[in-house]
């Protein structure tokens, strides 16, 4: 299949071990980055929203804010694709437990925060963004499928797009079926043309030959602990700014990415 090219202008990253993309760079250089402290800062949210927001929203907004700041773009101009394999697991756990015991006591706020597009909703409100926004999922392939959705939006509309992929950790009993033991989120700002902020170009093609790119040693198990960490082969390549990697775009479809300096 023919390849399509987009340009990375910003990168966001947050996990309990890595507070941003610079921390990943330092980890892969063999250094010991300072771990994140507490909850994601999510400075883009107004203070009262930040206090009330569930962690799924804080995580998505944190990585989105990092990527947009790096790109130098105005967040209000960016179309948004927010991906997550499991949505907000603590809210799912709360909802299902409450519905099993006292359904009439369900919290209205937790209910409207339970929609899969809550993080992108809060993001568009905080940034006064009226551009198209979407929330997607594709099980273990959520990052690759979200990237394909974002790339097709960049190319078809010839506009810059903010891609976020994030999942927070779950707890029992839901944890047994999600297997999501630690938080991980990442974001990219993608543009149709190279520019002053360009970090690397991505040439993207679909392939039916499925290969799972290996990860450098300190990251080896991260994908097992969080489906959104499937982004790591691409993020590790972005540290170098060049190279090839492959991600799952669907259960039976791969996304091959050839990265280059511009």
């Amino acid at each position: 299949m023919s390849a399509r090219r987009v340009y990375v202008e910003g990168i966001g990253l947050w996990s309990p071990q890595l507070a941003d993309f610079a921390a990943l760079r330092s980890l892969l250089a063999g250094l010991m980055p300072t771990p994140s402290t507490g909850r994601p800062a999510a400075a883009t949210l107004p203070p009262n929203e930040r206090r009330r927001a569930p962690e799924s929203v804080l995580l998505a907004v944190e990585v989105a804010g990092q990527a947009v700041a790096m790109s130098g773009r105005d967040a209000a101009t960016l179309a948004c694709v927010f991906a997550s394999s499991h949505g907000d697991q603590p809210i799912t756990d709360y909802m299902c437990a409450t519905l099993a015991q006292a359904p009439a006591e369900l919290s209205p706020t937790r209910f409207h925060n339970s929609v899969h597009n809550a993080p992108v909703g809060y993001w568009t409100i905080a940034t006064d963004c009226h551009a198209p926004s979407t929330a997607v999922a594709a099980q273990r392939a959520s990052f690759g499928a979200g990237l394909l959705e974002a790339v097709s939006l960049v190319l078809a509309e010839q506009r810059a797009v903010l891609l976020v992929c994030s999942d927070t950790a779950g707890s029992a009993p839901l944890l047994e079926v999600t297997g999501c033991t630690q938080s991980f989120g990442c974001a990219l700002v993608l543009a149709p043309e190279p520019g002053a902020a360009t970090i690397a170009s991505l040439q993207v093609s679909l392939t039916t030959t499925r290969i799972l790119s290996a990860l450098p040693e300190p990251l080896a198990d991260w994908r097992d602990a969080n489906a959104s960490a499937a982004a790591l082969p691409l993020l590790a390549r972005l540290v170098e700014g060049r190279g090839r990697c492959q991600l799952d775009a669907a259960a039976t479809l791969g996304l091959q990415i050839d990265m280059d300096h511009v």
Partner: peptide, 9 residues
Amino acid sequence: EGPCLTIST
């Protein structure tokens, strides 16, 4: 076996 995506807005 092509692109497969859930949209949940």
